[in-house]
Design a protein around this nucleic acid. Structure first.
Length: 633
RNA sequence: GCCGAUGUAGCUCAAUAGGCAGAGCAUCCGCCUUGUAAGCGGACGGUUGUCGGUUCGAGUCCGACCGUCGGCUCCA
């Protein structure tokens, strides 16, 4: 999957970072850039700006080349993005890979022409005349004049209409650009692919053709990026899921539904066991609830009003409507409400690895990352209002601890505020948002505001991690809820003997087991750390006469709860090693005449290195220590 | 859902221009008894996603549907 690239990221406003770079950057990239900027010299900043100009200019040059092929084509917008640029077109026919080659070739010619980029400011009338046959540009012009927004929808102080012209092509644009096309390294860009994209991201508006390109300062950087893309492909969890026999999906089963194979199931079990233990240490209690519930539940919660498009059609059971659950919260609320609660009992923390089902459009399903049935590491915390700040702080720290345990070290946070469709008074929303924001500040995590991104019942903090390839993934979500307690009329008896309303926190730390597993697979490239690895040791006897010793060793390790297999096929040792290597098994223990005689083991690590010879006991102790430390090898 | 691409053996991929559907790996059966990333031989394996159309003849051309992939939108 591509790194997250969306124009909505561009519009998000940062709260904490002090410096804003001149180009729009996505998610994680910003953190890297912001950190670099903080400790770095100006030259980095200049480099970023140069890249911005190059990418933006390439977008224009691409548009020129495309319009030469399709003189009747309509152009939309063409911004730089974190690894390059794109431009959206409305063309008479679909673009082919051959078109891309042609366009790219023509772009290099234009670059070689050393054409100047000429900026000029134009009046609305002149702009409309200039773009009279470009309906998308006319719409942008109107917006700039009416709303003071620029071509990306960002509000600017004083609306100015400007154009940039290079060679035969003039585009509505705020700039900046390179001075002339000769400043663009012709061997450091490449057109990657075409894709459909709605005009202004609105599915009710025309579908345009987008061409993505990547662009860098020099050929070497381009090649590094192309290699990175190749690495992304190699680590694709769908590919590794098949190769390592971790999971599968199946058209006969239905889209977005996941089959966990024994290998994947094993990883999941270790993850779940670890998390369960930590939750118990953290004061959580585990509950179990059904997969369906009567319509009353979902009417009361507001799901049928605010979440219906993500829910499946009801089942008819004895004339009553039942819905498959898209969330676990109403069930946990019913447990809370099963009897009177005292303030002394609070906070109460109910945890459940609960499986939920949500309708997702067919086109968005993606391996483990986006599915229709998934299991959340869900929990709901019920507390007194005065306990709320402390509970949010605890959840935030707990979340960071859990994620660090899996080798994630970099985090980003989003504070999502009240959406259009929401329950509850606005003033209480503002209070809740402030509470979450205060917690983020206490935790000293840099965060962005995602305006309108909250759940319908309350604002939330979403945590994203960065994986080994620098990509961000959303995992944790922490949601403040003052609405469901009211809707379900939840109460507790306070010190004063009166009824009070509890607050509620919804939270999932790994998010869903499916997505988390997908992220883990890609983060580790399938080479799980020893504590998670489905198979930890492969014992490889060299010839049949070593099988007995191999089985004996395996039994010993198994008795210590290691996951071990013996490869006693009649293949050559080389073939057995290759197979184990391809399965990314952490330890390959080779047993031959020498080892049997010496009573030692020859240990090969999956990184190809050779460990010193150890006795079986020493090896066992070593592996156990690696498991304990959650290390890779 | 929308735009585009795509669908051949369990997997990865071939099949000149519409003319008998093939290879490697995997699996199974033998032989080999092996020293740190593939030993050798043989066998098995297909209604070319499904349905319909064009044609003397369709894996190949056309249409619909299903799935997958790249995006858009949306999201754990």
């Amino acid at each position: 999957m591509r790194a997250n690239i969306s124009t909505s990221d561009i519009r998000r406003k940062w709260v904490e970072p002090r410096e804003i770079t001149p180009r729009p950057m996505m998610g994680g990239e910003f953190f890297i850039a912001a950190r670099r900027l903080r400790m770095a010299k100006l030259s980095k900043k200049e480099k970023e700006e140069k890249l911005y100009r190059i990418r933006h200019s390439l977008a224009h040059i691409m548009a020129e080349a495309v319009l030469e092929i399709f003189p009747e084509g309509k152009i939309a917008i063409g911004p730089p993005i974190d690894t390059g640029f794109y431009y959206d077109f409305d063309l008479p026919r679909p673009l082919t890979p051959e078109d891309l080659e042609k366009i790219e070739k023509r772009m290099r010619q234009i670059i070689a022409g050393r054409h100047k980029f000429v900026r000029r400011e134009v009046t609305p009338e002149a702009a409309r005349e200039l773009f009279h046959d470009q309906p998308y540009k006319l719409e942008l012009i109107d917006d700039i004049i009416k709303h003071g927004t620029d071509e990306y929808g960002e509000v600017t102080d004083k609306p100015v209409l400007s154009t940039y012209r290079q060679d035969t092509f003039e585009d509505l644009c705020r700039g900046p650009h390179v001075e002339h096309t000769g400043q663009i390294p012709a061997d450091a860009f490449k057109l990657l692919n075409t894709a459909g994209a709605y005009w202004r991201g609105d599915e009710h508006r025309p579908m345009l053709q987008r061409i993505y390109g990547t662009a860098w300062l020099n050929k070497k950087e381009l090649q590094t990026h192309l290699k990175w893309l190749e690495e992304v492909k190699q680590r694709d969890h769908r590919r590794l899921g098949k190769e390592l026999d971790l999971f599968s999906t199946n058209p006969q089963l239905g889209g977005g539904l996941v089959l966990w194979h024994p290998n994947g199931g094993h990883v999941r079990k270790v993850v779940e066991d670890f998390c369960r233990e930590e939750h118990e240490k953290g004061g959580y209690e585990f509950v179990y609830t059904p997969h369906i519930g009567r319509a009353w539940l979902w009417e009361t919660s507001g799901h049928l009003d605010f979440y219906r498009e993500s829910m499946y059609s009801p089942l008819d059971i004895d004339g009553q409507e039942y819905y498959i659950k898209p969330m676990n919260c109403p069930f946990h609320i019913l447990i809370y409400k099963s009897r009177r609660r005292s303030y002394r009992e609070l906070p109460m923390r109910y945890a459940e690895w609960g499986t939920v089902y949500r309708y997702e459009r067919g086109g968005v399903l993606h391996g483990l990352m986006r599915v229709r049935g998934f299991t959340q590491d869900d929990a709901h915390i019920f507390c007194r209002p005065d306990q709320m700040p402390d509970e949010i702080d605890k959840v935030l720290q707990f979340s960071l601890f859990i994620l660090r345990s899996f080798g994630f070290e970099e985090f980003e946070a989003y504070l999502s505020t009240r959406p259009e469709k929401a329950v509850g008074e606005v003033s209480r929303w503002r209070d809740a948002e402030a509470a979450l924001e205060a917690s983020l500040r206490r935790a000293e995590i840099p965060y962005k505001i995602d305006a309108g991104g909250g759940a319908f019942y309350g604002p939330k903090i979403d945590l994203k991690i960065k994986d080994a390839l620098g990509r961000s993934w959303q995992l944790s979500t922490i949601q403040f809820d003052f609405n469901l307690p009211e809707r379900f009329d939840m109460t507790y008896i306070g010190e004063d003997g009166r009824e009070h309303r509890p607050y509620m926190i919804h939270r999932a730390l790994l998010g869903s087991m499916e997505r988390f597993f997908g992220v883990l697979i890609e983060h580790y490239g399938g080479a799980f750390p020893v504590w998670l690895a489905p198979l930890q040791v492969k014992v490889i006897p060299i010839a049949d006469r070593h099988n007995d010793a191999a089985w004996k060793l395996a039994d010993k390790l198994k008795a210590a709860r290691l996951r071990v297999e013996v490869d006693d096929r009649s293949d050559r040792m080389n073939a057995k090693i290759r197979d184990a290597q391809m399965q990314k098994i952490p330890y390959m223990v080779v047993l031959g005449d020498r080892e049997v005689e010496n009573g030692t083991l020859s240990i090969r690590l999956r990184d190809g290195s050779q460990k010193e010879e150890l006795t079986a006991d020493e090896f066992l102790a070593y592996v156990q220590s690696v498991i304990e430390s959650k290390a890779l090898l």
